[in-house]
Design a protein around this nucleic acid. Sequence first.
RNA 1: GCGGACGUGGCGAAAUCGGUAGACGCAAGAGACUUAAAAUCUCUCGGGCUCACGCCCGUGCGGGUUCGAGCCCCGCCGUCCGCACCA
Length: 880
Amino acid sequence: MSSIEPAMRPERYNPKEAEPKWQAVWAERDLFRTRNDDPRPTYYVLEMFPYPSGRIHMGHVRNYAMGDVVARYKRARGFNVLHPMGWDAFGMPAENAAMQNRVHPAVWTYQNIDTMRGQLKSMGLSLDWSREIATCDPAYYRHQQAMFLDFLKAGLVDRKQAKVNWDPVDHTVLANEQVIDGRGWRSGALVEQRELTQWFFKITDVAQDLVDALDGLERWPEKVRLMQRNWIGRSEGLLVRFALESSTTPAGERDLEIYTTRPDTLFGAKFLALAPDHPLARAAAERNPELAAFIEECKRVGTAQEAIDRAEKLGFDTGIRAVHPFDPSWTLPVYVANFILMEYGTGAIFGCPAHDQRDLDFVNRYGLGNTPVVCPPDIDPAAFVITDTAYDGDGRMINSRFLDGLTIAEAKEEVARRLTAQALGNAPVAERKVNFRLRDWGISRQRYWGCPIPIIHCAECGVVPVPHDQLPVVLPEDVSFDQPGNPLDRHPTWKNVPCPSCSGPARRETDTMDTFVDSSWYFARFTDPTLTDRPTDPQVVDRWLPVDQYIGGIEHAILHLLYSRFFTRAMHKTGHAGLDEPFAGLFTQGMVVHETYKASDGAWVQPAEVRFETDGGTRRAFHVKTNAPVEIGSIEKMSKSKKNTVDPDDIIASYGADTARWFMLSDSPPERDVIWTEEGVQGAWRFVQRVWRLVLEIADQPGEAGAGPESETALSVRKAAHRALAAIEEDVERLRFNRCVAHLYELANTLQAGVTEARSGADAAGLGAALREAATIFVRLLAPMMPHLAEECWEVLGGEGLVAQAAWPVVDRDLLVENTITLPVQVNGKKRGDITVPRDADQAAVEAAVRDLDAVQRAIEGRPIRKIIVVPQRIVNVVA
RNA sequence: GCGGACGUGGCGAAAUCGGUAGACGCAAGAGACUUAAAAUCUCUCGGGCUCACGCCCGUGCGGGUUCGAGCCCCGCCGUCCGCACCA
């Protein structure tokens, strides 16, 4: 029996041995270290770096597996690939851990980094670990401080008052997502709105450019570009000043400026409305206690009960009367209204109820009436009445004096033209204004575990930047977390410093930077992370950036990506980079989801504690220990709270990294959620073993092609390999990993069939050689996805060097074309048969073959053939 | 409410230049091997009718355009995501 030979080799592929072995070989040969002086074309692939929360999760596995496929593929294609990894290491969880476990944030963070680095290494990722950075390292954040000061000098930084969510129990500022039903998420205390002086990056200065440049980001998902566009929220409108009747107005107030995008509807105005915290509203409230009470009421409702202020439009008449800019005899009441935001526009509007639903709801409540001024096409203006639904569509102006008959666009233009020419006091009544929803980026955080803002406050000299030669401002290590508030602020000595300018006693800024700042330039730092005297070498940055392929979660579609786009522009302006857009290609991958399990008492049960039985097609679940039935719940994002997580370490320990990577890439399109199932992992594991057996058998095939013509089978094996190669090239380029997997399965099936035939002893000339050639292609195609298994197979097949260093195979185009093709034949659009014709058969030959077809004759049932449509290389349709 | 995406077998999905719907995998079923199980190998696998050849139906629903529609157009229904009074 010839099967004795394979039996001598290990039948089973053992990832526990093979994976660490190959990882050690790669590390020893320093295979993935990237050199900046390498002359080959560059390719920068980057996955969003992780927060060191403690352990990696399946989402990381999916994300990094994808990036690694791209990195290994591009390397095989001859690129100088940059594929680095680092840690988004500042942030609140470290401080929470400090409070709960009395462990210093730095200790906690670096321990987590050590654990997670080990986990990532066990995945076999082709990362350049020599470039590893942690944002909490002073070697990193000193440059961030330097850039902050550069930005300050360049006019990109502002210091101003802003409202924050203040937790009065914890003495801390809360992010919006930490405010739940108006209460602090930790303390449960009612959150107050406080005015604090904060540092801001002036992102609004580049808002227009941030919108415009979105059009150039062609390799970004349309969805993300749209979300950014909406977030920036550009609108074109008019600032209009209304004169106020002095007899109705608090002393010192003469006019009121509003913002509108619908100046065309000015003749439909019924009222003006102010935000509750508008200065004029406050002034009016001083002489009117009821108004003051109303304003207080609005503030209280503010954060707590979104549901209510969504439904009810409430207002209060201030008694102030404003004069219509086109008619001195026409006055409008000025209300304070709860649906007007001080933060947007001027905090004041004019209301045209006929054409704005909010305004209509408002007037219907207070009986102010409405006048339609835009009439829809095909409607009689005399019969056009608005009752409950405002009309915001297109049409022509009515009831609007000199605007009547104009289109909306014409009317907007006419009003703008007239009002900008008209004077009130010694200034024009109106001014054209582009407005943005985007606000400046507040970066001050009253926390310890973040990058200190390098500023000193001096009673004499005011705000003084820390001199460059005194950077970094390093966080003190001796801090306590046993009291609420910012440890930096109550540190006994840290904040006391001499003023750099006058040497008098001064104090440090105790706020630290938003952690989004840390992640807004790490991709640039990776290009030369050991530079000590400056954040970046702009020439090196420009060679690597923009990142060719950035991969991460959709949850960062807006803030992280927008801030990074701003920061790169700011780095450009201050000479740290020569470009504006950091990410040329962006891909947002889906989540990893899993079934949930619930015990009868309502407690969540971990997947590892559940056992399944199938009877008659229905699946039942039981607790492994108690055997109690467990309810199979909905499929949801893996989360600790629902206990539906699977630990990558466990999977790698039992199946190996390749199996985990393969499964994460195989089942669903990468942008969609993927369901983690035990069956799916086992399927991936079976494939690993199957590949191993297949390769062992092929390795035993005779290598020589031999004399004489190649058999049909041998040729088809070679063709299959080159078809898979061509398809996978296209699919990897477009990140369609699930299709790559399908092609590899298909090729494995073809190889399997070839091996079966070879084993049967059939006389197929050159089959052994064809299988060997196909297998060396197969293994190189597999290598980006299952790198360890591929190395092991490469070795068995006698490949030169390491497959991680092997060049990508070259497609033999001749093998992709068939000499004969099979065309499906339709009759009246329904498939009735096939014809097989030479590839270059002309129309007439095809038609003749089709007419002869039995199936066609049967289907036309004696009717004459009216027409034969031949789509070359695709299909034939007979019309009868 | 506004904006966007998506609806294909028991399941995850292919097929997007308008040209054979269901590639590939999972689950299921049958068989081979085995003392047995696991593993492995072979086969079946959208629904219906038919001994069979084959025929009919089928891509959320209803219309339309076309020789031909999962794909294009119109109108519904459903699911998911983002924004949430932005004047």
